[in-house]
Computed example of a mutant assay.
Amino acid sequence: MDMPLSPNHCFLCGDELTNNTDEHIFPKWLQHKFNLWNQTITLVNGTVIPYRMLKIPCCNTCNNEHLSQLEIEISKAVDGGYGSFIQLDEDKIFYWAAKILYGLFFKKLSLNIDRRDPMAGTIMSPEAMEKFHTLHMLLQGIRFPTQYIPVKPYSIFIFKMYEYKAEDWDESNFNYFDSYFQTVYGMKMNDIGFILCIEDSGVQAEFGENYFDKYKDKTLHPIQLKEIYAKINYKQFLAIYPPRYMTIETDNERVVHVTQPSGDVFEDWSQELYARGLAHIWSAYPHLRFEDIYFPPDQVMSYLNNEDGSFKQLPKHIIKKI
């Protein structure tokens, strides 16, 4: 069913709000844990907004029951570190991360694309939000017990990361990055790093299983997590077929049939286009511009792998050398 996209309706269930309640897109516990409350995030149009101001309309039931329970589980797992986080039901991570991503898109419906010109429209239009209709459908798993058959609608990759102390000025224990076009999402929280491909019918997990296995028992530097994100994001850009789902609902649960594409799933990989995406994702590192990392016709710098393809173990502190 179509959900009303307005500040007077709950972003999750669509019910009209009888009193004004809000859901923090980045939950309060996360903001306090990583000192984000007064920090800012830059949106796609250049708007800079404090994390604490990123709130969306939410009814009491969704906020205090469904989402609250999810936040408790994720918060405890993050407090327990990587070893605890990887024990979580991956569906819970998916719902939590997808809620943040969808929440950011929803928030952009109410933010002017040009703050000097209120008539110029908002960052996100209701028509553009149609792209996330399927994502919103999947998010209803927060409210209703949901089974996915025969595969998950997403791919998730979880990695152990270096954890930094307050005096370690060169890297942070929190980082977040996403892609509007591919709905790919990455986050670092202390020694936990994960990348989620939200609507790929599990294809990336299946195709990339052997490739990513070599990183499972390693500790990654943040620059390496961003490189993996760049690979997954570009791979999703090359996806030929959109995912297809069929939902069957009963009074107490949903069953979502996920159809995986067959045959040629991705278009051909271009090292040059991948390098352009990687340079953008690495833009926080001033000496890693496109011309610094791409060597025609097909060589791209890597902090992840050695020339023979084996894992490149980086020291915890490398930023001064980049």
Rank of each mutant, 00 (worst) to 15 (best):
D2R: 08
M3Q: 04
P4W: 08
E16H: 09
L17S: 07
D22V: 10
F26D: 02
K28Q: 14
L30Y: 03
H32F: 05
H32M: 07
N35E: 12
Q39G: 05
Q39Y: 08
G46K: 04
Y51D: 06
R52D: 10
P57I: 12
C58M: 10
C59F: 10
N63A: 06
L67Q: 03
E71T: 00
E73W: 01
K76Y: 05
S84V: 00
F85R: 00
I93R: 01
A98D: 04
F106H: 06
F106C: 00
L111W: 03
D114C: 05
P118C: 06
P118E: 05
M129R: 01
L135C: 04
R143D: 05
F144R: 09
P145S: 09
P150H: 11
Y154H: 13
E163Q: 11
E163R: 08
E167F: 14
Y180G: 02
G193M: 01
D200L: 04
Q204N: 15
G208A: 15
Q224R: 04
Q224F: 00
L225H: 01
L225A: 04
K231Y: 15
F237Y: 14
P242R: 03
E253N: 13
V265C: 10
W269K: 09
E272H: 10
G277D: 07
A279W: 03
W282A: 03
Y285E: 07
H287P: 00
D292C: 10
F295Y: 12
V300T: 12
S302F: 09
E307W: 03
D308C: 05
K312T: 02
K316N: 04
K321R: 09
K321P: 03
K321V: 08
